[in-house]
Simulated assay, not measured.
Amino acid sequence: MAHNNLPKNHASLVVHGEDRSGIVAAVASVLAKHGANIVSLDQHSEDPEGGAFFQRTVMHVPDLTAAMPALTAHLEAVVGDELGLEWRLRDLSTPLRVAILASKSDHCLLDLLWRQRRGELPISVPMVISNHTDVAEDVRFFGIPFFHIPTPAGGDRTEAEAEIVKLLADNTDLVVLARYMQILSGSFLKEVGVPVINIHHSFLPAFIGAGPYKRAKERGVKLIGSTAHYVTEDLDEGPIIEQDVVRVSHEESLAELVRRGADVERQVLARAVLWHCEDRVIRNGNRTIVF
Rank of each mutant, 00 (worst) to 15 (best):
H60M: 07
K33P: 00
L167K: 14
D106A: 15
E161I: 06
T72P: 00
M59A: 14
R157T: 13
V273M: 03
G220P: 00
R271L: 11
V135L: 15
D111A: 14
H229P: 01
S249A: 08
K8A: 15
T151G: 08
V39H: 12
R20M: 08
I208D: 00
G80K: 10
N198Q: 05
P122V: 08
H132T: 14
L75R: 14
E163D: 13
H60D: 11
V139R: 02
L96T: 05
R280Y: 07
R260I: 14
V175F: 09
D236L: 08
V175T: 11
A26F: 03
A52R: 15
A178D: 00
K214F: 04
R266C: 14
D106N: 14
T57S: 14
L13F: 06
N37V: 14
G285M: 00
R117V: 02
L101V: 04
M68N: 02
Q116A: 15
M181R: 09
D19T: 05
L83Y: 12
M127K: 07
A255Q: 08
S226R: 04
F203P: 01
S226N: 01
I224S: 02
V27D: 03
G155L: 03
D244S: 14
E163A: 15
V175G: 13
A178V: 00
V15D: 02
T227P: 05
L174P: 13
N286A: 12
L64F: 08
H16T: 14
M181L: 15
E163Y: 03
L6Q: 05
G193W: 01
V39I: 11
M59C: 12
H3R: 15
G154F: 13
G119P: 03
R97E: 13
M59W: 01
D234I: 01
Q267E: 15
D236F: 12
A25Y: 06
V268M: 10
F141T: 15
P7M: 07
L257T: 06
L235S: 05
H3Q: 12
V15F: 08
D263N: 11
H148D: 09
L113I: 05
P150R: 11
D173A: 10
N171V: 07
H44W: 12
E161A: 04
R271E: 09
L177V: 11
V192Y: 02
H44E: 03
L167A: 10
